[in-house]
Amino acid sequence: MLVISQKEVVELLSMEGCIDAMEAVLADLATGQAMQSLRQMLPLAEGNLLGLMPGYLRRDGLAGAKLITISPGNHSRGLPSHQGVVTLFDASSGVIKAIMDGQKITAIRTAAVSAAATRHLARADAEVLAILGTGEQAASHLEAMLQVRELRQVRIWGRTPSKAAAWQAEMSSRFSVEITVCATVREAVAGADIICAVTAATEPVLLREWVKPGAHINAVGACRPTDRELDSELVAQSRLYVDSVESAAGESGDYLIPLAEGAIPQDHIVGEIGAVFSGQLTGRATDSEITLFKSLGLAVEDLAAAQYIYNKALRLQRGTEIAF
């Protein structure tokens, strides 16, 4: 069994490679070549969660799971909110092939999926990006968006101005793009072509009246039926795609709350983003419509990222082999 550390995960999983891997595995999910079960979430103390996410990559003969904790209060402790491990098994023999850090896989693959969705749904001339939130996903989403669009300006908003300023300084040292700190969400998204909502919000922070026609939105932060980042009017007036219809119907407050309010019909979801990647479903229809991708995170995404890392580790002789 190969054990791959967090440092090695970061070194082996490039954003560019991960975007392509996410597009491929979600297309496989849409065509039945990848399978997964709905994640199981066990509530813990202080509003924390323990999650189990199993999946199967039929084409590659691999199965596995991510075991993850979600602790929203960790931001105040200086710790990441998502931590865990990903395991890979040979689907035929059941032999454990690898175990690796799941925190960085989650950070990178989540942004990579948003980037793949943006590549297919955002306007080709999109050049202004707004990021709502200043955590780990904000940084990875900036890196990912720069892979799929030529950005002229980036705007960042966070609840704590000092954190937003520190984020701006760090990202400006890493990327050659203009980054501006905004005092309000409204200021950040005014005229933005792409909006990435990666907050820990439980109530809407992004309203329809602030979003321009033709914008594309990646809604990433809220992952429970009671939590949402977007108001009902914005969801109702957007062309909505999801990573998994089953997951959205069971877990997404951004979909379930407007549905319960009667603001949207049950069939408001256009379809799964993987069906767009596979050519089974069309993406953006007009330059003026608002497109929305609601991301919850899927087991097959973790397994595809883990497979990419494992194969690269074998080629480069990385990781630590142990008897198990």
Rank of each mutant, 00 (worst) to 15 (best):
A164S: 14
L12N: 02
E203I: 13
L314E: 05
I105W: 02
Y308W: 10
Q83M: 12
T320A: 09
A34M: 01
I322E: 12
H141Q: 08
E251G: 06
A34T: 03
E209V: 05
I179H: 07
A169V: 09
L292E: 11
E203L: 13
R77E: 07
R224N: 10
I257E: 03
T110K: 08
L26T: 08
G94M: 12
S5E: 04
A24M: 01
V300Y: 06
S5Y: 06
A117P: 06
M22K: 00
G78N: 05
C182F: 01
A219G: 15
L79Y: 06
R228L: 11
E136K: 14
H82S: 04
V245S: 15
E233R: 13
E143Y: 02
I309S: 03
M100F: 05
A299K: 00
S232L: 01
L206T: 02
A65T: 11
V220C: 06
A215H: 01
V85P: 04
L12F: 05
Q237P: 03
T320R: 14
Y241A: 02
P225I: 03
A24K: 14
I68H: 02
I68Q: 05
V154C: 05
M35Q: 15
E272S: 09
V128N: 10
T106K: 02
W210F: 08
Y255W: 15
T69K: 11
V3E: 06
G250A: 14
G221A: 10
Y310F: 12
K7L: 01
P258H: 08
A122G: 07
N48W: 05
G64H: 06
Q36S: 06
H216T: 02
A115C: 10
A304K: 03
E178A: 15
T291Q: 00
R58M: 10
K97H: 10
K312C: 00
A122Y: 03
E187V: 11
T110S: 04
V85E: 04
Q6I: 03
A115V: 00
I322D: 06
A236F: 04
D125I: 10
E187C: 08
S252K: 07
E229V: 11
E150P: 15
A285Y: 08
A166D: 07
S238N: 07
Q153E: 15
T118D: 07
R224H: 08
E246C: 01
E246L: 05
H216W: 04
A305L: 01
G250W: 08
